[in-house]
Simulated scan of single mutants.
Amino acid sequence: MTLLGDAAHPMVPRFGQGAGQAIEDGFALAVLLEHAKRDKIPARLKAYQELRLERTSRV
């Protein structure tokens, strides 16, 4: 299980930041999980977390 958008990284309620981050998160997660075998999912979710952490921290 993973979280995305405001559930994963709350944003201030201005400028549509939460919605924008949710779209970016969803796209990143879809790319990482595409064609993933069941045994690879935990590693892909970890990669998602690492990939999104820097970006969402800046926003």
Rank of each mutant, 00 (worst) to 15 (best):
T56I: 03
G16N: 04
I41W: 08
F27C: 10
E34F: 13
A28R: 04
Q49M: 08
A28M: 10
K40G: 11
L4N: 04
D39Q: 10
G26S: 11
L33T: 00
Q49E: 11
Q49T: 10
H9I: 02
A47M: 13
R52N: 01
H35I: 02
P10C: 09
L29V: 09
A19T: 07
L3R: 06
M11N: 05
R55D: 02
P13D: 07
A36K: 00
I41C: 14
S57V: 13
G18V: 03
L4E: 07
Q49H: 10
L29F: 09
R38C: 11
G26N: 05
E24P: 06
Q21A: 15
T56K: 04
L33E: 03
D6Q: 09
H35W: 12
E24L: 11
V59Q: 11
P13F: 08
R38I: 14
E34S: 12
D25K: 05
I23M: 11
H35C: 14
V59E: 12
T2H: 05
M11F: 00
L33A: 04
A36P: 01
L29D: 01
A30H: 05
L32R: 07
T56H: 02
T2Q: 09
A8S: 11
A36I: 00
I41A: 12
P13Q: 05
L4M: 07
E54S: 08
A8P: 06
G16S: 01
R55V: 05
G16M: 00
V31G: 08
K40C: 13
Y48S: 00
D39S: 15
D25P: 06
V31N: 11
P42T: 01
M11A: 08
E24C: 11
